[in-house]
Computed example of a mutant assay.
Amino acid sequence: MRKNKFIIIEGLEGAGKTNASICIKKILNKHHIVNVVLVRQPGSTPIAEEIRKLIKKKFDKDDLTKEAELLLMYAARVQLVEKKIKPALKTGKWVISDRHDLSSLAYQGGGLGINTIIINKLKSLFLKKCIPDLTIYLDVSPKIGLERVFKRSPLDRIESRSLKFFENVRKIYLKNIKNNQKFIKINANSDIKSVTKNITKKISNWLNTQVI
């Protein structure tokens, strides 16, 4: 059997991360990998889900500072890593996570302008033993992504940010995945059928390179 892996799905709002997570789990199942755990960040534990609500909530008078947002993201992330991700990996399960630390580098770093030294310090302190084996980056234009989000539900606090914010977030994503062997870039501007087909092809090819 293949050694279990920690797989991350990254991308802007409306990129299709939830569908991608489900798709990848199905692909793994077809390759006889059945012990698969799906999680999302922030969230997937009782405490992290409560933090998620705070992060997404629109406040009338007292909005979160950018530093508070970063720390809440990491509080939820560390809770999930320690309570769910590490235990799952330790018992041989595969883990697929909707977002991980690169989201903070892109959103709180690229989008909000927090110094990357601070963000990388948090990563070094709390995530050094939880390194992804593969990251799938769903690349969608901010305009297309936000149009999709607007159609499905009212925008939350983060989704309500400017187009420029998401353009800056995307720049950081693209900068970090460039020439990185642990990343697979997927064009997520197409319809869901085309994106799913592309994910299926690339993940299947990747699985075939893994040691059995």
Rank of each mutant, 00 (worst) to 15 (best):
G11D: 11
K151D: 09
I184W: 04
E69G: 04
K143Q: 15
Q108T: 03
E67Y: 13
I8F: 10
K175V: 01
I203Q: 05
S204I: 01
D101C: 07
M73T: 04
I51E: 10
Y107E: 05
K84T: 15
F165D: 02
K3E: 14
L54K: 12
P46Q: 03
H31R: 02
N179H: 13
P154W: 07
V34N: 14
L12D: 11
N189S: 00
S160E: 04
D63Y: 07
N179M: 08
V169E: 05
D133K: 05
L38G: 06
H32K: 12
I27E: 01
I177H: 07
I177T: 15
A15P: 07
Q41S: 12
K171C: 00
A48G: 10
K58M: 10
I199S: 04
Q41R: 08
L155Y: 02
R170T: 05
P154D: 13
V149Y: 05
R152F: 03
S124R: 02
V169H: 03
K90T: 12
E159L: 01
S190K: 15
K3A: 13
L127I: 00
K90W: 06
K202H: 14
I96W: 10
I172V: 07
I51D: 12
R161Y: 08
K25Q: 15
D191K: 04
V37S: 03
N35K: 14
V149H: 06
Y137N: 14
K128M: 05
E82H: 06
H31C: 02
L38Y: 07
N35C: 00
S194V: 05
I144L: 14
T116F: 14
R40N: 09
H32L: 06
K128E: 13
F150A: 15
G109C: 03
L105Y: 12
L89D: 06
K128L: 00
I24D: 04
K56A: 12
R52I: 08
M1A: 09
H32P: 00
N4D: 08
I118R: 09
E13R: 11
A15G: 10
I144C: 08
G109S: 04
S97H: 00
G111W: 05
G11V: 05
P132E: 06
L112G: 02
I24W: 03
L28H: 02
D191V: 01
T116N: 15
R40H: 12
D62T: 13
D191L: 02
K61R: 14
D101A: 12
T135M: 09
S97G: 02
K193E: 13
F126H: 02
Q210L: 15
R161G: 00
L38P: 00
V149Q: 12
F183V: 01
E49D: 15
S104E: 06
G43Y: 03
F165G: 00
N176K: 12
K66Q: 13
L127A: 03
T135A: 09
F6P: 11
L105W: 09
G113C: 01
I51G: 06
A20T: 09
I47D: 11
E159T: 00
V95C: 11
Q181L: 09
N168K: 07
N168D: 10
K90P: 01
P42Y: 04
L138K: 11
F183N: 06
